[in-house]
Design a protein around this nucleic acid. Sequence first.
DNA 1: CTGTTAGCGCTTTCAC
DNA 2: GTGAAAGCGCTAACAG
Lengths: 377, 377
Amino acid sequence: MHRFRTATFDLENGKRLQNNKNMKTTIKDIARDVGVNVATVSRALNNKPGVSPELRRTIQRRAAELNYLPYGQARSLVTRRTETVGLLFDMELGTLLSNPFYSEVLAGIEAEIRQHDYSLMFASTSGEPVQHFTALPKFIVEHRVDGVIVVGSVEANIIDMLITSGQPFVIVDYHLPDRHLDAVLADNVRGAYAATELLIGLGHRTIAFVGGEPLDHGNFGERLEGYRRALNDAGIPFQDDLVAGGGIENGDLNALQILARRPDTTAVIACNDTNAIAALNALQRKGYGVPDRISIVGFDDIPHAARTHPPLTTVHVDRRGMGRAAALRLIHKLHDNDSQPECETVFPAKLVVRESSGPPPAAKPADSEAVLPDERQ
Amino acid sequence: MHRFRTATFDLENGKRLQNNKNMKTTIKDIARDVGVNVATVSRALNNKPGVSPELRRTIQRRAAELNYLPYGQARSLVTRRTETVGLLFDMELGTLLSNPFYSEVLAGIEAEIRQHDYSLMFASTSGEPVQHFTALPKFIVEHRVDGVIVVGSVEANIIDMLITSGQPFVIVDYHLPDRHLDAVLADNVRGAYAATELLIGLGHRTIAFVGGEPLDHGNFGERLEGYRRALNDAGIPFQDDLVAGGGIENGDLNALQILARRPDTTAVIACNDTNAIAALNALQRKGYGVPDRISIVGFDDIPHAARTHPPLTTVHVDRRGMGRAAALRLIHKLHDNDSQPECETVFPAKLVVRESSGPPPAAKPADSEAVLPDERQ
DNA sequence: CTGTTAGCGCTTTCAC
DNA sequence: GTGAAAGCGCTAACAG
């Protein structure tokens, strides 16, 4: 009947396991060793009631001596909980990590997750080719996580698959206006609005917006929208040729380009700090004084923004807080069974005025530039 | 005898599960549905031999229809393999991620791991306080990973715990000279040697080294050592006041400080690119021409190094490759049972000459500075 | 080729 | 307080 494990014969040898290199000790071993039932060992080790204090101590001591390490797999199989959450993002890990925005979000998630004694699994789009998820990552398919945090934009079908899989999940920094999902977001529109408003208040009238891809939706789209609205509310017409999209790292080229075709520009808003800093450097190198000739404001308030020359005026987003909030939201979902309904948590975006923004240069030269007949319509 | 799961009574209803929201379908359900044994289902789904092609197809189709997702936990319990590896690093995640060096290493690890269809778990030092590991992370303790990759320096006792736990592991970018462990390393000494040699060859004699913490061991220590050896081999005495350690982000302050006390300095080697770029900016801002007045060389060849003005001469390390190598090494350890002995894989560090390095300014002025009597001994 | 059965390590009723 | 036994979902002998 009884087959023997590996090559060890079960000759009533209570301690055989600790002598066998290939075998980890289990509660069964401890039970045999102490002379109690496995259930008692389980109770003792998990600090559950129903074990006399001294027995509990004996068991715990013996477990430590035998170098006992529990098998999470086995526990999870019966408890249906892995105490692990998965992180999902539709970019290559390197891309995600090198983005100061997301790396802070991740740090927040990790901190919160860890504080609740959960573990974290990662999944990104595979390898070098810019290839998107075709299926959910293995660890989700195999029930290896209790829930998922989606970071940034992912393909719509991934969200659908998550929904049909029944996996609890929350999204951070990706706004799906239609669906009603748990999400943690930054108030991009209002942030960009405030930034634009600041510049208008300083007297700027020709304000450029240098963006990244994509510019029609997502974070950058929302920021562009805030810029647009602020202009509109101030009665300044929105002008296409003051906006440049394109590669996120090309803030320098974009800014230079706009300035070439619209020399009357006196301020630029960048879709994020990385872009703003690139623009700042490029402009300074070309001899444009910042903020005397041209003001620059960024978005995100990455650490480096405070250390540029001049320090960058930007819009602060509590990325770390967003990460923590998302993680916390998920953990709540996992514990209180479906208690709260889906909700969006919007983090305020706060303008941080530093020294890269100031009033535009005296009106005269700007005016003369502006009326040059050869200016593009 | 038979207790009923939850509130569903087992009335020979082969399809009850898919109607029950709380219950995922299992191979048992499929078996019942198709009218075969669970073992057959298992074989069919895992593409194992011993199932007729048509039966296999039927089972697979039915599994898909029933929305079957396997329970990795259960499988792992019997196969003793989780197909997951853990990542261990003794810093806060944010710190790790904001470091371009490590984020590339991680990307490499992730890519390789994923290619082999493994998953990745993360563990960092907990939370904000600079607190080090006191115990192995939960996922290791609970056998939730098959092996571990240690990134960067960790406390020695963590290594010890890993060893006694019997977990297969490989270290990347952390050199423990004493022990004989699996590790993937960069050839820091030789890299720094080459950089220093380049400068010496160009005619520099007063070469500063601006470092980060710690400077007595680890990567920076090894780079300093390479610098030292190159000087030595060229017959140039090593001078303490040409070296500045301190905060890794303070390349600017350190460089300025050295230049203040040793105006005869004509070149600086930085312990990494982040530092070098900080120094570059600071020096240029103070009016020092680079490379005319002073040459700068970095270490790591982070992406941004090619985009500075002037582009940075630096030492390239294939961080991504190191990550991949470490992951691959671990996976091999997991498959071929303990085949190869422990080994260190050393990645070459290749000098990349760009435009931030050049010959020192004409000897005259440098000489006159160098002989000023008030120069510190 | 397919079915039977034992069991991975653990938790959890249910008895006593 | 403690023990006995069932079983989580799956794989892997072994038997036919």
